[in-house]
C-alpha cells in the first residue's frame, strides 16, 4: 500500500523515562570494540570535560529503535514490517548522551514517499531530558520493498 502523505507531522506520546547507565554505555562501546576510556571511566570522562562517561555517537539508536516502534505498529501507517529494511539513519547531537541522563523519546513522522514501488517512511525521534533539555535528534528512514 502507498503511505498516506497526510501522516506527515503525526506525533506520538512521549516514552517512559530511560535512565542511561554507565554499564549500558560500557556494554555498547564493547560491542563496537571501542576502547575509548571516556565510555567506561568516569575520571577519564571528567578529564575530557564531561560530567560523567559519555555514550558512543550511535548509542541513541538504543532509545530511538524502541521509540519508533509506535510508528511502525500504528495501524493507520500500515507498514508491512516483514518487508522493511533500514535505509538511512541520522543523528544530530545537541550534546553527548551521558550516564545519569533521564531521557524521554518523542516520535514524529517526518516524511513519507513512494519511489519505484517502495514505501519510504522517515521517523524523527527527539530525545530530551525529563526536564526538557534537548539531547539528540535521530532520523530513521525505513524502506518497505515493493509494497506500493
Amino acid at each position: 500500500m502507498t503511505l498516506d502523505a497526510g501522516l506527515v507531522g503525526r506525533s506520538y506520546p512521549p516514552s517512559a523515562v530511560y535512565e542511561v547507565g554507565r554499564e549500558k554505555i560500557a556494554e555498547f562501546a564493547t560491542a563496537l570494540a571501542d576502547p575509548d576510556p571516556v565510555h567506561r571511566d568516569p575520571a577519564a570522562a571528567r578529564a575530557a570535560g564531561h560530567p560523567d562517561v559519555i555514550a558512543p555517537p550511535t548509542f541513541a539508536i538504543v532509545l530511538s529503535l524502541g521509540a519508533a516502534d509506535v510508528v511502525v505498529e500504528d495501524p493507520e501507517v500500515g507498514l508491512d514490517y516483514s518487508r522493511v529494511v533500514h535505509g538511512e539513519q541520522r543523528f544530530t547531537h545537541h550534546r553527548p548522551i551521558r550516564a545519569g541522563d533521564r531521557l524521554v523519546a518523542t516520535a514524529t513522522i517526518d516524511a513519507v514517499k513512494t519511489v519505484a514501488g517502495n514505501d519510504m517512511l522517515t521517523t524523527r525521534v527527539d530525545l530530551a531530558t525529563e526536564d526538557g533539555e534537548p539531547v539528540c535528534t535521530t532520523r530513521s528512514m525505513l524502506v518497505a520493498r515493493g509494497t506500493a
Binding site: 565510555h39 570535560g49 538511512e88
Partner: peptide, 13 residues
C-alpha cells in the same frame, strides 16, 4: 580524540 565532538552523523545503507 573525543567521541563527544561528533555533532552530526548520517549514513545510507
Amino acid at each position: 580524540g573525543d567521541p563527544g565532538a561528533v555533532v552530526e552523523y548520517q549514513v545510507r545503507f
